[in-house]
């Protein structure tokens, strides 16, 4: 039996020696994306420690500080590096807090879509027959609607069910479910395809000959072997989910201005865009673009690294 420490060391030694790590270090673009993504995570989740101001602390907000430009513009101050918005909130700090909201909603939405999609995909692929047909036809129908429409639909339904008050309280959860529901199809399709390949492989048949029940085979043998492509989709979907959340917030059905995400900030800022206060919307917009680009590049790399044909 190995000691846990030795096991950990071996794990990292193997990881550092692996082909994936090698292909990672080969491209500076990928390394840069990883660093940018990591920086976003640190800034977002360490916002309460790093951010120069707390935009949610009403006591510190001063309306006299509203509409200050970035520090290099005339009238700007180094107290607010990227300027302030209409409420006098520091744009830089709001971006950090906003990224946190965006990332949390994105992550949870992707997790929800993944669980739903993987579960249905495994079921469809392994059981087959009528269950397979039903699940995949529902998926086909859903694919004919743009994801944003599905999300809007879910949001509308929940608004009707919960009432305005309840809806506002559960807004983040509603967003997560709305975005998750609009992206599960891709996971289900990919997983089903992989399952159809894996379930005819001889190691699965060997488990069946032992007498192992189907549920156990799916969990222990099939699932780990279909996770590769799922992780690729998840990474790329994270970027999509963040964009969808931003779109919803921009359209006003997302998070309220009191609890801003990047999308909400862009929305608030766009009304001042033509009156000269461009920084309120441009900086959150740039932050969103950079974050999405970095995550997307990571996803592309992961897809290529896991594809044996391209190696």
């Amino acid at each position: 039996m190995m000691l846990p420490l030795a096991r950990t060391i071996e794990f990292w030694r193997r990881a550092a020696d692996s082909d994936i790590f090698f292909s990672f270090t080969r491209s500076w673009l990928v390394v840069a994306s990883a660093i940018v993504t990591a920086l976003f995570f640190i800034c977002a989740f360490g916002a309460s420690f790093i951010a120069p101001h707390n935009p949610f602390d009403l006591a510190t907000l001063q309306l006299s500080d509203a509409f200050l430009p970035p520090f290099w513009e005339e009238g700007g101050t180094t107290k607010y590096l990227l300027g302030t918005d209409d409420q006098g909130r520091d744009v830089l700090s709001t971006i950090m807090y906003g990224s946190r909201t965006s990332l949390i909603v994105g992550f949870l939405a992707v997790a929800f879509a993944m669980v739903l999609g993987i579960g249905l995909g495994l079921l469809a692929g392994y059981v087959g027959g009528a269950i397979d047909s039903i699940i995949m036809r529902v998926a086909d129908v859903q694919l004919t609607f743009p994801a944003i429409l599905i999300a809007l639909l879910v949001d509308g339904v929940s608004r009707a069910l919960l009432g305005a008050q309840g809806h506002a309280e559960a807004q983040e959860l509603v967003l997560i479910i709305a975005i998750g529901l609009s992206y599960w199809v891709q996971y289900a399709r990919t997983v089903r395809g992989s399952v159809l390949v894996e379930k005819n492989k001889e190691y699965v048949q060997a488990a069946r000959v032992i007498g192992m029940p189907a549920a156990l085979i799916v969990l222990r043998h099939v699932l780990p072997n279909v996770m590769g492509p799922v992780m690729v989709i998840a990474t790329i979907n994270l970027a999509l989910a963040i964009i969808t959340e931003a779109t919803l917030s921009f359209l006003g059905v997302g998070l309220p201005p009191t609890e801003p995400s990047l999308g909400t900030m862009i929305n608030t800022g766009q009304q001042f865009l033509f009156s000269g206060e461009w920084w309120i919307t441009i900086f959150p917009g740039a932050a969103l673009a950079i974050l999405v680009l970095a995550v997307n590049l990571l996803g592309d790399w992961l897809r290529d690294a896991l594809n044996p044909k391209l190696r």
Partner: peptide, 29 residues
Amino acid sequence: MQMIFQDPYASLNPRWRVGDIIAEPIRFR
């Protein structure tokens, strides 16, 4: 009864250690 398969590359789960692969019938039963 047990079965031995043709393709030695497909008949072992690539993500399991050989020890776990062999122990599977012992653990399961």
